[in-house]
Design a protein around this nucleic acid. Structure first.
Lengths: 197, 197
DNA sequence: TTCTCATGTCAACACCTGTTGACGAAGCGG
DNA sequence: CCGCTTCGTCAACAGGTGTTGACATGAGAA
């Protein structure tokens, strides 16, 4: 189902990237401490020891998986686009349909699935603040900008959790548009009266 | 900080209850697989072996902790009261201020903090459906009743997660009322046009 | 008391985790 | 060829988990 390239002879950079990709996939789908280094290394076609060796530990691996080279979640987004964009981040997490999440929302999935772990929650919290809360709040103004952004993050986490862990909020094609507009309305309500800057 | 009664001589029913109480506290605050049987047993003043012996395993303990004797979350609630009641469930999770969550919302915390664990997610999913989704949907009508209830659950999970794992959405006294009304508006938006039955 | 059974304790098991040190082997310049 | 560095593998470790069987000890009955 997930066939990575196992033929990769003594190329340090490629091996490192393969580990990072495998880690992103697994962290996003299972969460930080529901997956072992042996699984991550196995899917990368590598010995588990290399993970600790290259990244200096599982926590560092999570840090690089969360930060790393992925594009920012909010770029060129305006206040008026926010609800639709947020709903899109949630609903497009199926990606290419091969079980791989879309690259842009993979980080979001990693964050929300690793929030419960005590080892990972600090990393997740920091990344969520930097990558989600701050960009959203920057688009708003008024005293309630931060609170509104927090509510949006809450919806992201809750709805993402329902989808990825509970299998809920995954309607058929016919109802998908309805869910999207419902989510957009919800995000709009979370933003409240935080006007355009 | 949490001193349970360690003097409990050979009373099977009382020890069972003590284990269950300790498990509820820990599951609600740390989540299913972030706490060990040794911690739960330790706070109950009991040998860890007794947990497996009385409940037949950690998973069964979670099942009893989630079901159990606690009162239902939605009782005597009408459609018009729903937003305020849902917001109350979230904001009153501090309980007596001694670190113990209010009994009524403890179950909610157990559910949302154990949703990520693969061992516990099935139990959490089932309990969430029975104790939250179904009661909410029962108060609504129309084709979108289930979807609206799912959105409410998403807000509960997300906001609860932000509060318990990230420490967010915990305003000072002055802003507490504002958060409450913001949450009520959010739940109202999630309910959408699902009218009163 | 003595017998008995429920109740609780102890130590150990088997399993899994992340991590590391010692070793092997490929690539490459000499 | 040799020597050397980089890359990868192997086995093992220390720590933690849930669980279980053997043993101790309480309370109550005969």
């Amino acid at each position: 189902m997930i066939p990575p390239i196992h033929v990769r002879l003594r190329n340090a950079a490629a091996t490192r990237q393969a580990i990072l990709d495998s880690a992103r996939r697994h962290f996003a789908r299972e969460g930080y401490d529901n997956v072992g280094l042996r699984e991550i290394a196995g899917d990368a076609g590598v010995d588990p020891a290399l993970v600790s060796r290259y990244f200096g530990g599982k926590e560092q691996l999570l840090k690089e998986a969360v930060r790393g080279d992925t594009p920012p979640l909010f770029e060129g987004i305006r206040r008026a686009d926010l609800p639709a964009h947020l709903a899109g981040l949630l609903l497009e997490d199926e990606g290419d349909g091969c079980g791989n999440a879309a690259e842009k929302t993979e980080r979001l999935l990693i964050l929300l699935r690793s929030a419960s772990s005590p080892k990972a929650s600090e990393i997740a919290r920091e990344a969520a603040g930097e990558d989600i809360l701050r960009p959203i709040a920057a688009l708003l103004d008024g005293a309630s900008a931060e609170a509104s952004a927090s509510l949006c993050l809450a919806i992201l986490i809750g709805a993402g959790m329902l989808r990825s862990a509970f299998g809920l909020l995954r309607p058929h094609r016919a109802e998908q548009a309805a869910l999207r507009t419902a989510l957009e309305n919800l995000f709009e309500a979370a933003l409240g009266d935080s006007g355009r800057r």
